[in-house]
Design a protein around this nucleic acid. Sequence first.
DNA 1: ACAGGAAATTTCCTACACGATCTGAGTGAT
DNA 2: ATCACTCAGATCGTGTAGGAAATTTCCTGT
Lengths: 239, 239
Amino acid sequence: MSSAAPGATVGPLPRRQMLADDVHEAIKALIMENAIAPGARVSIDGLARQLGVSPTPVREALARLESAELVVKEPLRGYRTTPLLTREQLDDLYQFRLLIEPWAAGRAAEQADDGGRDRLEAEMRSCATPADDTYDSYKALAAHDTRFHVLVAELAGSTQVRRAFERTHCHLHIFRLHYDRGLGEQTLSEHRRITRAILDRDPTAAEAAMRDHLETACYERLRPVSEEAGGPTRVDPQG
Amino acid sequence: MSSAAPGATVGPLPRRQMLADDVHEAIKALIMENAIAPGARVSIDGLARQLGVSPTPVREALARLESAELVVKEPLRGYRTTPLLTREQLDDLYQFRLLIEPWAAGRAAEQADDGGRDRLEAEMRSCATPADDTYDSYKALAAHDTRFHVLVAELAGSTQVRRAFERTHCHLHIFRLHYDRGLGEQTLSEHRRITRAILDRDPTAAEAAMRDHLETACYERLRPVSEEAGGPTRVDPQG
DNA sequence: ACAGGAAATTTCCTACACGATCTGAGTGAT
DNA sequence: ATCACTCAGATCGTGTAGGAAATTTCCTGT
């Protein structure tokens, strides 16, 4: 009999007190912030020294990042960050997004409860106008884009879809391919259109809006890569 | 200029000479074979002794298995195999499969090349008649089911879809929930129907066949779980 | 310029120390 | 007598340090 208020769930309390966990987050942040070039080598001992820990937690963190496909391991040679996506891989990625995200938008329009819709409105309110051309501004917009798409998947009520989306790390890949190209006002207006359809509980409109949004983005993204089409479009910073 | 025969791709040769990799496969096999009960504790030192290695590669392997969601980690307490799926999670899983697999079957019907179609026929030929009621027979059929669905996703030409499917580990969960329930002749006949549609290059029929197949399986699977519906359907082998 | 080889760096694994958690018995109070 | 609490021992996860094996790099000799 604790003195918990009725209706207050106690929660399983996170229990975060592992060095390896912090190391994992630190390395993930390094990759997400593009502080390590795509395809560049990631030294275990180097990171250990840099972070002031022993190699063991670094090794554990890198093993997890490998499963998340943020780094790749070459036996007896070490880890590298995942190379840039080829044109085929980017195409494949958007095909997958077109398969799951319009569906998610439709289900979100059908099933989102009041709390969910509030969160969606709050997210849209939180980034009224970016328009700035600075690096930080672009980064903030990219972060909003990530949150928005994850939120839509969450509102659809499917854990599997949300995780499948998150595991693509599509924003990381897009960011690395061209963090300069402004996905500015147009992105926001498309997000607003999706949001409106969800708030209006109009699944058909939500699906269509999401599909249009992705197809627009897909065209935007694929254009610059096609300059060097033909070859495998592999990056090798060392060579 | 090597002396390779024309048309023979040399391949990047796997370079498998890491103990941690073998340990990873060994533990994965243990889980897949259901040698460790769902939700049971997995001791690092215990596995290290059992496999005759030091704890370090075991930790690396478990870290990767955690990202694959085959085990879960409780800080300072160790790892456990993932618990049995609740009814909601199983429902969610089939919803996801219904989203991506009929699509994959349709694309496979459209795009599969001759080599792919040969592989599909070979897979279907390889398991002519199971019908046996033994555990091994069921296990063989489950293995065929896995290979079949992965192959369809592969023939669809989408790496993202194939990986998303593989990462669900749906066959592991189904197997653990009830490895007794015979998905015998009916499964094979449904597979044959899907195969026929793909070989006939009929996307509409392939999609419909896959959808029917999953819906049938879904009903089969969900029925026994509903016996104990209501509660969270959590398993606690220790208690 | 190119082949061969040795030194340096790095990965990978083992062995060990520390700290936290869990199990059980024992003690005390109700 | 039953229950709750406490406290020791054992067990296990976590991080550090060190050594063996492999790779990469650089240098030398032809």
